[in-house]
């Protein structure tokens, strides 16, 4: 009896630990995009934004038969910079890539790490998401103009909530907004929350005057009429959200929280091409298009050097605002 129970427990454990790798160890037909033993690093914890992007992309690539199994693994820490420095030290390894995004750009600056994104081989930007400026339904602010007038008059008395720590996307968005609207970013009263969930409660409860977060997190609350969106930060209006862009409102900022893929430095051109090819094929596959739709992600596909230029520009923008804030 005892032995059987122990055995069944043991086999259950083995099931958890072994099934995912075993399932993925079957090799697929050798197409041009096949990279045997490709590993996809996620620099934050399971369930986080980069994690979901990476796992969804890996599954879509496998389902589309583009490559054999892709092992997704997590190396969290310090806003993604622990993973970044490990990737940078993996010089010349063409079989590893890292899921990343705007948050990592900020974390490099706030943590003052020696490895930066300029050290990596840029592969592609894949998605982007507009941020939104939200207030609870019972807020006295009906339009962005009203909010802005009060904010300009007394920035300190209007706490802004965001779901990321300083240097993260939800922190950068209000700072850039303030800068463009003639408010000293240093006087912005930014309250940092542990992710969009915790922020949501504070916005609904009126703890903060307004919140800044990704549009995807609150679709349901917006639809249910619990939250009112005053503005979207991206270049275009967002489907299903009745709010103008910041540029329309005369605040000259375009801000999206994007996600992309980078690879270690020192790759040969062939290795780099192979990775870009795989991502391009993935981007065109119906599996990925379906995943975009299911998750509500906006396509923002840019590859190779263009992505590299974009990275450099974003880096400069983030550096500028954080320097002004003294971070």
């Amino acid at each position: 009896m005892r032995l059987r129970v122990l055995l069944s427990l043991l086999s259950a454990t083995l099931l958890v630990l072994l099934v995912p790798p075993l399932l993925s160890s079957e090799s697929s037909a050798g197409t041009g995009t096949n990279i045997p033993g490709l590993r996809f690093m996620v620099p934050n914890t399971p369930g986080g934004g980069y994690d979901i992007t990476a796992r969804t992309a890996a599954r879509a690539a496998e389902d589309a038969g583009l490559t054999g199994s892709i092992e997704v693994f997590n190396l969290p820490g310090a806003g993604g910079t622990v993973g970044l420095s490990s990737l940078v030290s993996d010089h010349g390894n063409g079989r590893v890539a890292m899921s990343m995004g705007l948050g990592v750009v900020g974390a490099v600056h706030t943590n003052q790490t020696s490895s930066t994104l300029a050290d990596t081989t840029p592969i592609a930007r894949i998605t982007q998401e507009s941020d939104i400026v939200v207030v609870p339904a019972d807020s006295r602010y009906q339009s962005f103009e009203e909010l802005l007038a009060d904010w300009q008059a007394n920035p300190g008395s209007l706490p802004v909530g965001g779901g990321s720590s300083p240097g993260g996307p939800d922190h950068l968005a209000p700072m850039l907004m303030a800068q463009a609207a003639g408010i000293d970013p240093r006087s912005v009263n930014y309250v940092s929350y542990d992710g969009g969930g915790e922020l949501l409660a504070s916005v609904l409860g009126g703890q903060v005057a307004f919140g800044v977060s990704g549009v995807g997190e609150y679709r349901d609350q917006i639809e249910a009429g619990e939250l009112r969106v005053l503005a979207v930060t991206g270049p275009e209006r967002v489907d299903g959200v009745d709010a103008p862009t910041l540029t329309e409102l005369g605040v000259d900022v375009e801000f999206t929280n994007w996600r992309g893929i980078v690879a270690p430095p020192g790759l040969t051109d062939a290795e780099r091409e192979r990775l870009i090819n795989l991502v391009t094929e993935l981007h065109e596959s119906p599996e990925w298009q379906e995943a975009l739709e299911v998750n509500g992600w906006t396509d923002a596909f840019v590859t190779g050097d263009d992505f590299g230029d974009f990275l450099a520009a974003e880096d400069e923008r983030v550096d500028g605002i954080l320097r002004e804030l003294g971070l």
């Binding site: 820490g77 310090a78 806003g79 910079t81 622990v82 943590n111 720590s165 300083p166 240097g167 940092s192």
Partner: peptide, 20 residues
């Protein structure tokens, strides 16, 4: 770890792994 409000590092001795 990292001070969540200001982004300063505390008692990490410059070690990235301690930032969280």
């Amino acid at each position: 770890g990292l001070d969540r409000l200001t982004g300063q590092q505390r008692l990490t001795f410059g070690t990235l792994e301690l930032a969280d």
